[in-house]
């Protein structure tokens, strides 16, 4: 039963993420991404990580995707004639996209094959309660955790800078 649910949810997550990049309507993309997040949350639940599942739904499902929907609606991107998402990928950007994807694939397989070579993977495997998670996150792994948050912060600032430059160019034209 749990196995069947796992495969169903895995299939849902894969189909959902494919729909995110291939669908023509941005709203469909956002909703597919939401569906993917739910499938992932169910997989976390099956693995016994209640807190992770709830955090996934709360943060990604409840806040981030609402924000995405808000932006899509505010910019009125909801018209299907805007073209497929794939058209945005021109030749200049293609190598970077491939490089990023290749890196993700390598990382994923390294995680799967290495089985616990990633720091913290062993401890997490038999951890269930929120207290244990908090102990790991704010105890032994405080430094990596904070480093990751600073990395994310840097990425957010970088995105704002990039987006802003594109905007002024568009106005000049």
């Amino acid at each position: 039963m749990a196995n069947l649910l796992f495969y169903l949810m895995g299939l849902g997550a894969v189909i959902g993420s494919l729909l995110v990049v291939t669908s023509k309507n941005p709203i469909t993309s956002v909703l597919s991404l939401l569906g993917t997040f739910f499938c992932l949350a169910t997989i976390y639940l099956l693995a016994g990580f209640q807190f992770l599942a709830a955090a996934q739904i709360l943060v990604y499902g409840g806040a981030i995707m609402v924000l995405f929907l808000f932006v899509v609606m505010l910019l009125n991107l909801g018209h299907p004639e805007e073209g497929s998402g794939l058209e945005f990928m021109n030749k200049r950007r293609m190598p970077f996209a491939f490089a990023a994807s290749a890196m993700l694939i390598v990382l994923t397989f390294a995680g799967v094959l290495g089985q616990g070579s990633a720091p913290g993977a062993v401890e997490l495997a038999h951890m269930a309660t929120i207290g244990d998670l908090a102990g790991l996150m704010f105890g032994s792994f405080l430094l990596p955790f904070e480093a990751a948050s600073i990395l994310l912060m840097g990425a957010a600032v970088a995105v704002i800078v990039l987006a802003k430059r594109e905007r002024t160019q568009a106005v000049e034209r």
């Binding site: 939401l34 209640q50 807190f51 739904i57 499902g61 409840g62 929907l69 309660t129 929120i130």
Partner: peptide
């Protein structure tokens, strides 16, 4: 549930999708 308080906020917060969509 051990995550009761989170559950209410997480699932209850999804009601907003009804309004937006």
């Amino acid at each position: 549930l051990d995550i009761g308080a989170l559950w209410v906020v997480a699932i209850g917060g999804l009601g907003i999708y009804g309004v937006i969509l």
